[in-house]
């Protein structure tokens, strides 16, 4: 199908053309409009995401001497930090994301069910949204550092006179805990915003109908609100998981090199002037993210019948 060309002549002839032709012109222009509106964002995505993605892929399988090779992936897998990086990344995701969702859902429900002073909490809880990753990491570094708030509190109150190294490599448990706490603090807000938006979309009639038909507050949450925000939760889960595979600044700020993760390994390869190795890591992160998204979409899919109304 030819795209209609909007020239002065075309416009003029259209004004004179019989109504049928005029209508079909208007219709095809109407059909083209959505695509035109998509062009800017599509261009943005191609230039800043698709092109670098292809470049990274090429970089990861193409050595500087011009040969196609899998050596960067082999080296990545055999690297001393590789298993640690994979394990740490997955551990952070497995612990932090359920916590983020738990808190976000509870916070969203508290806000939506209008407990006293709840609108104030929305602003309070949304503050981390405005804080950058690195700044969030530094905030928690100030708390968990050797001379941080926790240790000075423990010292001045006399609970533990000797400073405890929360973030040391030897105390893996507390290091992981600190990273998870910082991640939860930082990223719960965005999940909460999505949950609140989802809850607000539920027509109040549903809640009232549930109330009339005997549902207690808990039953209303369980049988009406939670099922109806499933699509929102799905979006939030995909978003959060993909971003969590890229967890980086918080970990670097809190743990430095004590806790390698996938993104920090990519960063380190780059720092070692090994862009091919960095690209291999980047490509690994991309692949894992893609697979997880597909799994989520299959497992959590809500049928159209269930969503429609």
């Amino acid at each position: 199908m030819a795209t209609p060309q909007v020239t002065g002549d075309a416009l003029a002839s259209n004004m004179l053309a019989p109504p049928a032709a005029n209508r079909s012109f208007a219709r095809s222009r109407e059909r083209a409009l959505p695509f035109l509106l998509l062009v800017p964002s599509a261009l943005f995505l191609v230039i800043f995401f698709a092109v670098p993605m292809v470049q990274a892929l090429i970089l990861s399988i193409h050595s500087p001497d011009g040969a196609w090779t899998l050596q960067y992936f082999e080296r990545m897998v055999r690297d001393v930090n590789f298993t640690d990086a994979v394990r740490n990344t997955f551990l952070i995701i497995l612990v932090a994301i359920p916590l983020q969702f738990l808190f976000a859902i509870v916070m969203g429900l508290l806000l939506q069910n209008k407990l006293r002073g709840s609108s104030l909490f929305l602003y309070f809880w949304a503050i981390p949204l405005a804080v950058s990753d690195l700044a969030a990491g530094l905030v928690w570094l100030a708390i968990f550092g050797d001379r941080g708030f926790v240790n000075s509190f423990l010292r001045t109150t006399g609970i533990a006179p000797i400073a405890f190294s929360w973030l040391s490599y030897e105390n893996y448990g507390t290091l992981l805990m600190a990273v998870v706490i910082a991640e939860v603090w930082r990223a719960t807000a965005i999940v909460m915003v999505i949950v609140v938006a989802g809850l607000q979309l539920i027509p109040p009639d549903y809640m009232e109908a549930a109330e009339v038909f005997g549902a207690s507050r808990w039953q209303r949450i369980w049988h009406v609100q939670l099922p109806l925000i499933r699509p929102s939760l799905q979006v939030a889960l995909i978003l959060r998981t993909i971003l969590a595979f890229q967890v980086f600044a918080v970990v670097i700020a809190l743990a430095g090199r004590a806790m390698p993760v996938l993104a920090s390994e990519a960063y380190n390869r780059y720092g070692e002037l090994n862009p091919n190795g960095a690209a291999a890591y980047a490509f690994l992160i991309l692949t894992i993210s893609l697979i997880t998204t597909i799994v989520y979409l299959i497992v959590l899919r809500t049928s159209e019948e269930e969503m429609g109304q």
Partner: peptide, 16 residues
């Protein structure tokens, strides 16, 4: 829920 009533809503409020 303690009133032994039932209600039909204008929007029906049938759970999707």
């Amino acid at each position: 829920r303690k009133r032994t009533i039932a209600m039909v809503f204008q929007s029906y409020a049938v759970f999707p």
